[in-house]
Design a protein around this nucleic acid. Structure first.
Length: 487
DNA sequence: CGCATTTGACCTGCGC
DNA sequence: GCGCAGGTCAAATGCG
């Protein structure tokens, strides 16, 4: 074995052309060569590395010097591009090490710098992506407002679009002295929330600078004020929505013996999303989860569906909640162009409850009833499916025209990399299955997307999170349908 | 020891 | 202005 190893070692050195020019006897490259080197083809990088030497060396002499100086610095060089690695020990050309140490250090620093830069760029990309999604949501709302031709929305929502700012900027712009109490780690969303404890301020005029800032801030966050409640049957304390939550409070709500728990999203520092979880007083097996706000960070695959649904519902709510004919719109889905917007929602017509009387505009998606076997809404899936949260141009067009029923345009959204959690899949499965066109398009799309999905990537972590926070198993949710009514 | 949860106090908006 | 209710904070506590 040792002989073979030594042979390979020699071969490795022989591959270094520069090394051949030197006086290098085999005995000078002995024992402590790394096995790593034996298993990799010598790379050009190695040759170049040694090429920096201009003179032949008496390696034995060098080693003597190094040994007496106590220097034994084992250095691992990793060539990330070529996938080669090499361990240089004091059995290598130590003199060359001495001479090249600055270069090695430089390379290492450069590598670290590039690594860091890569990390920053990745972070930046996430932020930009998030901003892009947010902006598109606003465009969606503005477009919807234009289609509806509602003057009030022409005043409010397009302005919100124009005043769009990046979420991170929005989070950081409120002066720190606007609050009396704050914890250092969640300054951002505290400010956001403090400005809107009970009532939406989209139509309020305040006089102070802080309040004006917050007011305009609120206008830039249309989703922030909308709430989406999801009613589902669950024995656990919370439903598994794929996100990571931290409980920050619990209150006894009036009229309900069950306490209401308050959770904050902890997947990203400063994420403004919160949820309230409360059991139904009439039926304690029903858990009502109320979401508020938009995530300012990428979501794990298993969280995308819920976020998409709630965001789409919030968008719907906000696009119609300021109108006087909302009730009519929801009640008669085919009456107006905007009605097609609602009509496309998957859980059409009887279970989604819109609360106009609540302090916040709130839409409730009732997942506690079995799905009705009628009127599947495949177009909803295209528009408000798992990633409807991130509408694309086609979606926006389809919303305004209400005629776009081309599944090929819409499938990429449905089958975006983040697949929905199982319970959500169950919730919409019936609607999907009943549309043959959709199924065919689905099959076609799968062939394109297969391999890109990462459905299970976060399942474990999410399960862990949910187990900590009392999340339910996916099976707790019932199949569902949702319809609109008004309180 | 660090992190999450609990829980009473506090803040804010609204209605009277 | 006061009380109420919803919502949040943060110290205390529990847990792994």
């Amino acid at each position: 074995m040792d002989e073979h190893a030594q042979d390979r070692r020699e071969i490795a050195f022989l591959h270094s052309g520069e090394f051949l020019q030197r006086d290098s006897t085999p005995k000078d490259h002995q024992p402590s060569e790394s096995p790593v080197e034996h298993h990799h083809k010598p790379s050009i990088k190695e040759v170049d590395f040694f090429a920096a030497k201009s003179n032949p060396y008496d390696l034995g002499h060098v080693r003597t010097i190094v040994d007496t100086s106590g220097f034994n610095d084992e250095l691992v060089l990793v060539n990330s591009c070529l996938g080669t690695s090499r361990i240089i020990t004091d059995d290598d050309d130590d003199d060359s090490n001495d001479k090249n140490k600055p270069q090695i250090r430089r390379l290492k620093l450069e590598l670290e710098r590039l690594h860091e830069e890569n990390h920053k760029l990745k972070h930046l990309l996430d932020e930009i992506s998030e901003s892009y999604n947010d902006l598109q949501s606003r465009v969606l709302l503005a477009r919807q407002a234009q289609v509806e031709g509602l003057h009030k929305q022409h005043e409010d929502i397009p302005q919100a679009v124009l005043e769009y700012r990046r979420p991170t900027d929005m989070n950081n712009e409120i002066p720190a002295n606007t609050l009396k109490r704050r914890s250092p780690d969640d300054v951002d969303d505290h400010d956001q929330h403090r400005s809107s404890p009970k009532t939406p301020r989209l139509d309020q005029n305040k006089s102070t600078n802080h309040e004006e800032q917050q007011n305009s801030h609120d206008q830039t966050l249309p989703f922030r004020k909308a709430r989406v409640s999801v009613r589902a049957r669950s024995d656990a304390t919370t439903v598994n929505d794929g996100c990571q939550w931290r409980k920050y409070g619990q209150k006894m709500a009036k009229g309900n013996p069950c306490p209401r728990a308050y959770y904050r999203c902890t997947m990203s520092v400063g994420c403004p999303v919160r949820k309230q979880v409360q059991r139904c007083a009439e039926d304690t097996t029903i858990l009502t989860t109320t979401y508020e706000g938009n995530h300012n960070h990428p979501l794990p695959p298993s969280a995308t569906a819920m976020a998409a649904t709630t965001s789409a519902a919030a968008a719907m709510l906000l696009s119609g909640s300021t109108t006087s004919n909302l009730h009519q719109t929801l009640s008669t889905p085919s009456a107006t162009s905007s009605s097609s917007f609602y009509h496309n929602f998957p859980y059409t017509s009887t279970i989604a409850t819109l609360s106009a009387s609540a302090p916040f505009p709130t839409i409730t998606l009732d997942l506690t009833n079995p799905p009705r076997p009628l009127q599947p809404q495949p177009q909803f899936l295209s528009q408000y499916g798992p990633t409807a949260f991130l509408p694309n141009a086609n979606q926006i067009r389809s919303m305004s025209s209400s005629n776009n029923n081309n599944p090929h345009l819409l499938l990429p959204n449905l089958l975006a990399p983040q697949a929905p959690p199982r319970d959500m899949v169950d919730s919409v499965r019936a609607a999907i299955a009943m549309d043959p066109n959709f199924t065919a398009a689905l099959a076609a799309a799968i062939s394109n997307i297969i391999g890109g999905g990462n459905d299970n990537n976060d399942n474990n972590s999410n399960n862990k999170v949910d187990s900590k926070s009392g999340g339910s198993s996916n099976g707790d949710l019932q199949q569902s349908c949702t319809t609109f009514s008004t309180n």
